[in-house]
Amino acid sequence: MLGKLLKFDLKYGMKVFILLHVIIVFASVLGRLIFLDPLSFSNPDGALVSQVVLFSSAIFFLLMAACFCTWLIIAFRFYRNLFTGEGYLSWTLPASGIQHLWAKIISGCIWYLLNCFIEAGCVLFLVSGSNVTEACSHIAPEVTAELGIPLSTFALVLFLLMLVSGPVSVIQTYFCVVIGQLFPAHRILGAVAAYFVSSFVIQILSFVLQMGTGLLPEAFFIAQTGSDTQFATYFFATIGFSCIMMFIIAIIQYCVIHYIMKEKINLL
């Protein structure tokens, strides 16, 4: 049953997802061929920097838009399939609420991870031209000295963090939608409120825990003054802390969703 649900979940929104990602792949190819490849970084001046900043910003916003639309597909599918008129069909299929939930979590993660890989592929393609890699190799020692780790390692860690945050983001989205459905007259408003309230609580909790563990930037850098690898140490410590926090919060949110999907569904 889970496989059947998953099949139909993945089918939904496929056209929009493909169209969206064809656009960003196309934009990346055009950006590389028309803009990046003809650039020469041998004598960088103000005009070149401005152009690169503008181009990078445009690509950044395009990738963010694709990411946001992917998130919308995931959130909209979950809400529409389970809590609108379509819910009358979904909830009367011979499948349990938990099977529905897992089908949605797995399909959401697949969409999210596909989006991450395509976006990372686009970025990699954009910066893999010989002129860009050569320019990067010139500044690599300085960047490594500043970061305490090579730029490639830094990018890889950020990419892995993005992959890990995928399932967490999917669970958080479902958590907000499910909380919202406890307020039948204001489901969407309830979901938005749940997002802001849960984000606020997580921020406060994170701040308190960072204070307790000495991971606040000010406290950390004062304690580590003089060390060559202080940024890398802080970076990895923060990422480790974030991953543990995300994991714990995702488990708590999953438990709440599980309980509501099993015991509290009221389709009015």
Binding site: R80, G85, Y88, T92, L93, P94, A95
Partner: peptide
């Protein structure tokens, strides 16, 4: 009501429920 009962109940809601 659960998975087993949904196999034997065919339900027509009072609204459009199809995507």
């Amino acid at each position: 009501p659960g998975v087993e009962t949904k196999k034997i109940v065919s339900y027509l809601p009072d609204r459009n429920y199809l995507g």
